[in-house]
Design a protein around this nucleic acid. Structure first.
Lengths: 147, 147
DNA sequence: ATCATTGCAAACCGTTTGCAGCCTT
DNA sequence: AAGGCTGCAAACGGTTTGCAATGAT
């Protein structure tokens, strides 16, 4: 039982969610995996461990975890990764924020804590309230593998 | 026949694509619409004009237009908008680029030409080669409507 | 005991594929 | 005339919904 799992369990419990075995198992799998996972990826992982679950259940657990800032949804792939930075604050141009960098070789992700504001030129007739940013890159091992 | 449509037609022709009526009709609809459209939205629009098309055809036309930088794909919704900025260059942190701002009230979009580099702190073990950025905001009329 | 959560079935939606026929070149 | 493009049919994968059974509190 690692930090991510216990943190997740405590957070969910504090908000009145029930600590079911399915939720604990999903948290455990997320904590063991660096690459983003789809709900069906999780089902496969779990069946390898002889833990039978339905994909629908994983969908609902992912919804719950996302709403509580425990996982990131990756727009470009529809998959999810654990979120280790507790303060997941949606932000304007002035606030501190964090984003995800995705390796286009292996899909591994890194979280980025970004204190510098993103500079955006004024937009006519529109007030900006937030943004979604995904960085595409290549991790060290993929740099070696593909060079 | 406006600038966007003629520009699109000329670009496609110059690359050896055929100028079919379906492609011209889709370009015309894109030029008339500020909000992002799904392929099925386009089919509906066209049937209102008594122009019958198949959604599959629109999908393929969208693919073609996207590859030629004539439309943007919006990750968060899977819809598309016309792209008026010709130089649609994927970019690193140093280059000039452009992105989309989306009104969360009505879905209208604005294109942003962004010359200032986006400042990203160094990421351990990863080289950043590109990024996807979508700005969320609220346009003037929606600010009034919802206030 | 209560009620949130799970799991099965089935529907749903957006998207893709194969192939014959059409239309631009 | 040639071959890119269209459109129908059908399949496909991911996601959602309804409802009864289960299990955490």
């Amino acid at each position: 039982m690692n930090t991510y799992v216990t943190h997740g369990i405590n957070l969910l419990r504090s908000k009145g969610f029930r600590i079911t075995t399915a939720r604990q198992q999903v948290l455990a799998i997320l904590s063991e995996t660096e690459a983003p996972l789809s709900p069906y990826d999780v089902v496969d992982y779990m069946s390898e461990k002889n833990q039978k679950t339905d994909a629908i259940t994983v969908y609902r657990i992912f919804d719950c975890l996302e709403q509580n800032g425990l996982i990131h949804r990756i727009l470009s792939s529809g998959k999810f990764v654990k979120c280790r930075i507790e303060a997941h604050t949606p932000h304007s141009q002035q606030q501190c924020c964090h984003h995800i960098a995705i390796c286009d070789g292996c899909g591994t992700t890194r979280e980025i804590h970004c204190h510098a504001p993103i500079h955006i030129p004024p937009i006519p007739d529109m007030i900006i309230t937030g943004h979604r940013l995904e960085l595409i890159g290549r991790c060290t091992s993929c740099q070696e593998r593909f060079s």
